[in-house]
Amino acid sequence: MTRAQANLVALAVALVLLTAAVGVALAATSGAFVAADSEPRDRAAARGVADRLVAAGGPLADRPNVLNASVVADLDAGALHAAVPATRNRAVRVTLNGSVVAETGDAAGGATVRRVVLLERTEAFTRRPALGQNGTLRLAPTASATVRLDAAANVTALWAAGRQVRHDPAGLVGTFDLALDRAGPTRLRVNGTGPVPPGAMTVTTRPWSTETAVLAVTVDG
């Protein structure tokens, strides 16, 4: 009966081999299991935060996918927490074209979602025109304009793009905010009892420039 005794040694060796293989396999794949378990959560969180940041009603964007450059410049961890509560208790990093805008915690790994956005800068531009009695001023494209009129301006009505937007037969005096069509230039016309002398009227427009950018949101944990 020597055969059965020899097989006992072989069985022991086989068990050791198989156990070692299983051990190596588990060590190699446990990383994949951990990643598969946590990455979808990170990815869903990153997608949610990014959606919020580029949404028109969100903390950064004026219109869908158009971010306000000055608001982006002011963004920090506290502002991010306040604007997007989902970033609390998570390590979140927001970058724009690769440079970090805001960071909460240390997002070393995790999942990243990238969005295509426009970064829009607006710069106030003020002019003090002298106009005739029914003079016209051509404004470069702007979403809004602020017109300040003194009593000396002799203006009773303001017209923008062919529509009367302000009217007071006793004379328009004060500061008036006009919402304009940003798609093209606007003709601003005054009606008055006399010409507008220099300095009696100021018009502030807010022309903008945009650049393309990639907003990346990384969430880890």
């Binding site: 069985l11 060796v13 086989a14 081999l17 198989l18």
Partner: peptide, 11 residues
């Protein structure tokens, strides 16, 4: 050795 053969297949 049959157990060794099985172990090889298992690995």
């Amino acid at each position: 050795s049959l157990p060794l053969l099985e172990a090889g297949v298992g690995v």
